[in-house]
């Protein structure tokens, strides 16, 4: 096994093109996860027992099954039911849905960490539901959520290679196609590893800063 720098440089543009798709998938997936997660969290708090139970089960089910299989489900099963999605869209929805269940827990933890007295005080001063949420609960609930959310964002970024299994041409898939056409695995696979490692090591520094700035969710 020897490392060929010329070859490594020559495949860089292809890998970077894949990296762009990886970033796009991460950002879009994170947006889906943030919104859907909030929906899950709110539905789970619903006063209607049936809605709350059903949401709870759905969340547990999604958390208890592999992301890869969920991606296959969206990519292969939905077209048979008449819903045809491009690979990237399917991937973004799959990842977003999967991580929404994790985000829902973060939302729930953040909201429950607001002391009961705050809710009671809001009621006592005759604030509307909207005012209570916007001016009392959310400003206290959101900051502790930020480090946990950033953590899941990083986790999701690292999971994007799974999208290659449903033909999205992201970083891993580009590396695989380069490797398969040149019969050289060492450089592409190692470069992919290094790229992920560099991004996540930098992110870890960012995460530490976020944790110092906003603190962890206290249990």
């Amino acid at each position: 096994m020897e490392w060929d720098w010329d070859f490594a440089w020559s495949i860089m543009p292809t890998l970077l093109a894949g990296f762009r798709i990886t970033l796009i998938a991460t950002v879009l997936g994170a947006m889906v996860a943030a919104v859907l997660g909030l929906v899950f969290a709110i539905l789970r708090r619903s006063p209607n027992r049936l809605v709350a139970r059903t949401t709870g089960f759905v969340v547990e089910f999604i958390r208890g099954t592999p992301l890869l299989v969920q991606l296959y489900f969206i990519f292969y099963v939905l077209p048979d039911l008449g819903i045809r999605l491009p690979a990237l869209t399917a991937g973004v929805i799959g990842m977003g849905l999967h991580y929404a269940t994790y985000a829902a827990e973060v939302y729930r933890g953040g909201i429950e960490a607001v002391p009961r007295g705050q809710w009671e005080a809001a009621k006592a001063t005759n604030l509307t539901t909207r005012q209570t949420w916007l001016h009392v609960v959310l400003p206290q609930a959101v900051p502790p959520m930020i480090p946990a959310m950033a953590n899941y964002l990083l986790a999701m970024f690292k999971e994007t290679p799974l999208l290659s299994a449903i033909t999205v041409l992201e970083l891993m898939n580009q590396a695989k196609s380069v490797a398969n056409s040149s019969y050289r695995y060492v450089e592409p696979m190692t470069l992919v590893g290094v790229m992920f490692l560099v991004v996540s090591l930098i992110s870890v520094i960012g995460l530490r800063w976020l944790e110092r700035r906003y603190g962890r969710i206290s249990r």
């Binding site: 690292k158 999971e159 799974l162 891993m172 490797a179 695995y185 060492v186 696979m189 590893g193 996540s200």
Partner: peptide, 22 residues
């Protein structure tokens, strides 16, 4: 840090495709 910084997928491919070359 190395194993938490990259995903299981990348590690698996590296172990399966790159290690045999050593």
């Amino acid at each position: 840090e190395f194993f938490r910084g990259t995903s299981i997928f990348v590690q698996l491919f590296w172990i399966y495709f790159v290690l045999p070359m050593t």
